[in-house]
């Protein structure tokens, strides 16, 4: 009470000072927006504007407004390039992303459930082993060697299982954080009712994990769709193109079609951009939560 009183008093006395403060605040606001736009929006403006240009204009590498709008022609040309390679790539990347996410959801949530609930030395060791995967760099050639032993090198099965293996630690981390918040009484009630472990999980726990499921889907979708390194190693071959590799269609030592290259960049950035538009809060909180708990 007395605080509000003294505040109104000081307001009357210092109304001029307050005006000055507001002005400073406004300047800070404008400054923040401008600086942030220069550093973070100009590169995207550059991509968009060059995706609209003709080949000669784009070769200038400038942010000047296009003299001729060719966005539609460029996109068509990008899609048709190399016998519709971009469409193949979108298909391949989508298959890899979707299937590995489905695997991650089931496999990851089950594992996190047991790892969190089961109190034993073994489950602690296993937790540590999974967490280590957040740090350890994957061993490249030995992984290829293992894939070859099973005859799944250069196959969808191979790349999907590798993507799943690499994302399992982070997925388990996300699920464990959420499962820890589900009271154990729920389990106990189910056990008294005579529910088995598998049923307890599928009928009760799994449906409760809905909020994390969506976080797991979105974060893994961005990571796997944008992944360049692992398809490069474990899914090589021209018929196996993934979207990230299509960027190299228009680059050569001597002559790069910058307008087509940036039209391609634009096209493959649309999926993550859509996710960002609809789920930015989810993505941000998921990444922050996963990271802080790690």
């Amino acid at each position: 009470m007395s605080q509000t009183h003294s505040m109104t008093q000081s307001n009357q006395v210092n109304s001029k000072e307050k005006q000055k403060k507001n002005a400073i605040q406004l300047i800070i606001e404008i400054f923040a927006v401008i600086v942030c736009s220069i550093f973070f929006l100009v590169p995207f403006y550059f991509i968009i504007v060059n995706a609209m240009k003709n080949s000669a204009d784009a070769a200038q590498l400038s942010i000047a407004w296009p003299t001729e709008f060719r966005i539609w022609e460029n996109i068509v040309e990008v899609i048709q390039a190399r016998d519709y390679m971009l469409l193949t790539a979108f298909f391949n990347s989508t298959v890899i992303t979707v299937v590995s996410i489905v695997i991650l959801i089931f496999v990851g949530s089950m594992a996190a459930f047991v790892l969190h609930r089961r109190v034993s030395k073994l489950s602690k060791t296993l937790s540590g082993l999974f967490l280590a995967g957040l740090m350890i760099p994957p061993a490249v050639v030995p992984t290829i060697w293992v894939l070859e032993q099973f005859g799944i090198f250069k196959s969808f099965t191979g790349i999907i299982l590798v993507e799943a293996a690499i994302q399992i630690p982070f997925t388990i981390l996300l699920y464990t954080g959420f499962i820890a918040a589900i009271p154990k009484e729920i389990d106990e009630a189910a056990i008294i009712d005579g529910t088995g472990g598998l049923q307890l999980f599928t009928k009760i726990i799994f449906p409760m994990l809905k909020p994390v499921h969506s976080t797991v889907i979105i974060l893994n979708a961005v990571t796997i769709f944008n992944d360049f390194v692992h398809p490069l190693y474990f899914f090589p071959g021209s018929e196996n193109a993934t979207v990230q590799l299509t960027l190299y269609n228009f680059m050569s030592m001597f002559n790069t079609d910058w307008n087509l290259l940036f039209a391609n960049v634009l096209l493959i950035t649309i999926p993550p951009f859509i996710l960002f538009l609809f789920f930015s809060e989810k993505i941000v909180s998921g990444m922050a939560a996963g990271a802080v708990k790690g």
Partner: peptide, 8 residues
Amino acid sequence: KIYSYWLL
């Protein structure tokens, strides 16, 4: 026992 390692 209910948290079977089979799920893991």
